[in-house]
């Protein structure tokens, strides 16, 4: 099983998924992230999926779970870089990730988090 690295940048965590995700890797990422968010006191988590060619219902559900989990741990999660074909496929699959914040790319994801955190004193 591969492990997805979690990078720290200020009070943000950046996760860039560069591997074809198997279910075990996704589950491990969820658990690793929960620990690191708390250990580092992170306020924001950016998950870059620009290299991910396939998001199926399992991975999609895990993205939603991670976003919810982050919220409960006082961090905001943003999924960035979703490919157009992945978005089309997810909607047709019946999974529109309603509770997940998204941004087109890393830069916009960081800007969104700055904005979100700025709005909450």
């Amino acid at each position: 099983m591969e492990r997805v690295p979690i990078l720290k940048l200020g009070d943000l965590l950046i996760v860039s998924i560069q591997v074809d995700l198997d279910d075990q890797t996704v589950l491990a990422l969820k658990e690793d992230l929960a620990e690191v968010v708390v250990a580092r006191g992170a306020r924001g988590v950016i998950i870059d999926i620009s290299a991910v060619e396939i998001v199926d219902s399992f991975t999609g559900r895990m993205l939603a779970t991670i976003a919810e989990m982050c919220r409960m741990l006082d961090a905001h999660a943003v999924v960035v870089g979703m490919r157009p074909a992945v978005a089309i496929t997810l909607v047709e699959l019946g999974l529109s990730l309603g509770g997940v914040r998204t941004a087109l790319n890393l830069e916009k994801g960081v800007a969104l988090l700055d904005h979100v955190r700025g709005a909450v004193p």
Binding site: E53, I54, D56, F58, R83, A85, V86, I88, T89, E92
Partner: peptide, 17 residues
């Protein structure tokens, strides 16, 4: 097409799982 590739690969992933 890229979109159809993505759809059939995703379907395969669901069925295999």
């Amino acid at each position: 097409s890229l979109i159809d590739q993505t759809k059939i690969i995703t379907a395969a992933s669901e069925l295999a799982r």
